[in-house]
Amino acid sequence: MPPTPSTPPTPTRPPLPPFDERTALQKVQAAEDAWNTRDPERVALAYTEDSVWRNRDTFVTGRPQIIAFLREKWTRELDYALRKELWTFGGNRIAVRFQYECRDASGQWWRSYGNELWEFSADGLMHRREACINDLPITGADRRILGPRPPAERGTPIPVR
Results as ranks from 00 to 15, higher is better:
P2D: 12
P8A: 11
T12P: 07
L16F: 02
P17I: 00
D20T: 08
E21S: 11
E21L: 13
Q29E: 12
Q29A: 10
A30W: 04
E32K: 00
D33H: 12
D33W: 08
D39Q: 11
V43N: 13
V43C: 11
L45F: 07
A46K: 06
T48H: 08
E49R: 14
E49N: 12
D50E: 13
S51M: 13
S51L: 09
R54C: 04
R56M: 09
T58L: 14
V60A: 11
G62E: 01
R63V: 05
R63L: 04
P64A: 08
I67R: 14
F69Y: 15
L70G: 04
R71I: 02
E72Q: 15
K73N: 04
R76Y: 06
D79N: 15
Y80F: 15
L82T: 01
L82Y: 00
E85K: 15
L86Q: 07
W87P: 01
G90A: 13
G91C: 10
R93G: 08
I94Y: 02
A95D: 11
R97G: 09
F98R: 12
E101H: 10
C102G: 01
C102K: 03
C102W: 11
C102E: 04
S106I: 06
G107T: 02
W109P: 02
S112F: 03
L125G: 01
L125I: 08
E130Q: 14
C132T: 14
N134A: 10
L136A: 09
I138E: 04
T139S: 15
G140F: 10
G140N: 12
R143G: 04
P148M: 07
P150E: 09
P151Y: 09
A152N: 09
A152D: 10
P159E: 06
V160D: 14
